[in-house]
Amino acid sequence: MSESRLMVPALADVQVEGLTRSAFLVRSTLAAGAVYGMGAITPFVGSAFGQKGDEGDIEILNFALTLEFLESEFYKRAIRDVKDLSGDVLDAAEQLLEDEDAHVTALETTIKDLGGKAVKAPAFNFGDSFKSAKDFLKTAVIFEDTGVSAYNGAAPSIKSKDVLGAAGSIVQVEGRHAALMRSFDGEQATVGAFDMALDQDAVLEAVQPFIKE
C-alpha cells in the first residue's frame, strides 16, 4: 500500500472517493496536462477538439446533468406550488431556476459536443418540500450543499481540462446558491471550513428518494 505524499490530517475528509473505474484516467490526465497546457476557463467545451470525449468525462457530465435536472425541476415546481413563497426568497428561487437551467443546457451541449448522449430528466417526487417556504428552503439547502459536494467529488476524476474548468465554474455558483439558501433558512453560509467531497454513490443515495422509479 503506497502512501500519498499528502498526509494532511485536516484534509482526510476531502478525500477523493469512488475513484474506481475512472481512477486510471486521472493518471493519464497528469500526462495529458502537459500536452494540452492550461486551457482558459470556459464553461463550454468547444467542438474544436473534433474528437470523441472521454467516456468517464461523459459519464460524470451526465451525472451532473441529472443533478441539475433535479434542481431545475425543484425550483420550477416550488415557484408554482409553494403558497407562501414571496419577496427575496421567491426572487432567489427564480434566479436559481434560471441558473440551473443554464447549467442543464451547458451540460447537454457539452455532452453532445463530446460525442456522448445526454441523459433525459427522470421523474421527480419532492415529497412535502412544497408545503411551505420553510420546507422548500430545507430541501433547497440539501440540494445545493449536495450539488457542491457532488461536483467537488467528481472533479478530480475529470480528464479534460475544459470539462474540469466547466465543472469548477458551475460548482462555484452552486456554492453561492447554497450560501444564499442557507442564509434564508437562518443558517451560516458554510458547513465548515472545507466542503466535503461526495462520490456518486453517496450523492445518488441522497437524491434517490426524490427520484421516481
Binding site: 474540469l164 462555484q172 453560509a189
Partner: peptide, 25 residues
C-alpha cells in the same frame, strides 16, 4: 483549478474554493 496536476491537491483546492464562494455570496 485546471493548472493543478495532482488530483489530491485539486481535491484540496476545490474543497476550499466552494467555501470561498459561500463566503463571497
Amino acid at each position: 483549478a485546471t493548472r493543478i496536476k495532482s488530483p489530491e491537491v485539486l481535491a484540496a483546492a476545490l474543497s476550499i474554493h466552494s467555501v470561498e464562494a459561500r463566503h463571497a455570496a
